[in-house]
């Protein structure tokens, strides 16, 4: 077996640009997912039955169907409804954001439920409403709890974002495919792609561990 090391070295810069794009769509999607997840997660445990039910449907649907199918739905099926093409970048972050929103909602729910029930009682007994108590007392404390699982979600999505290569969006995996189409260096390129993913995920998990430690000692 002979590895074409030159090909690996020459392709590396192109792949690193793709990795940048992968991080970019992951970050945007998790940001979107964080906003969605916060509201859906709170709705999931709200006192309004309808909100709880809607949140449950959202979470079940998005966690119960493959991300790949969700990407197809948004990129291929949605244009049929809208009557116009969807930009691949928009489709990618929408699919990933909505999807991670469901996972982050569950992270939020767990983070909120980990807060001592006495906190809600103390807030309510002072005359604060449920939303006021959530906003000023429960959610700020929950944020601290959810940093580790949120880091895991970021890593999971970073890997899963490779799926958006199927709609032609040129992130890391797609770039790898394109280089292989030109050079036939399948083994070399996939090794490079795997290494780049690994470096990213390891870096992020170290970063999260560090952050967790800093918050702990505060």
């Amino acid at each position: 077996m002979n590895l074409n090391v030159d090909l690996m070295v020459n392709s590396f810069p192109l792949l690193v640009v793709g990795a940048g794009i992968t991080i970019q769509i992951t970050a945007i999607s998790v940001g979107l997912g964080l906003i969605i997840g916060m509201f859906v997660g709170i709705a999931r445990i709200s006192q309004v039955k309808l909100l709880r039910a809607l949140a449950a449907v959202y979470i079940d649907f998005l966690r119960g169907t493959p991300l790949l199918v969700q990407i197809f739905l948004i990129y291929f099926a949605l244009p049929v409804v809208l009557g116009q093409r969807v930009d691949p970048f928009l489709a990618a972050i929408t699919a990933c954001g909505i999807n991670s929103g469901a996972y982050i909602a569950e992270i939020f729910r767990a983070g909120i439920q980990a807060i001592d029930a006495g906190q809600m009682e103390a807030g309510r007994s002072l005359g604060m409403t449920w939303p006021q108590t959530m906003r000023h007392i429960i959610v700020p404390q929950a944020f601290k709890n959810i940093i580790p699982p949120l880091g895991n979600e970021f890593i999971a999505l970073l890997k899963d974002s490779s799926l958006v290569s199927v709609i032609g969006f040129e992130e890391l995996t797609r770039r790898g495919q394109l280089i292989i189409a030109r050079t036939y260096g399948s083994l070399e390129i996939w090794i490079c792609v795997a290494i780049i993913y690994l470096v990213m995920t390891l870096t992020i998990s170290r970063l999260v561990a560090y952050l967790e430690k800093r918050l702990d000692t505060k």
Partner: peptide, 11 residues
Amino acid sequence: MVFQRFNLFPH
């Protein structure tokens, strides 16, 4: 109301 376990807001 004052609780047995204080329930102050730690943050």
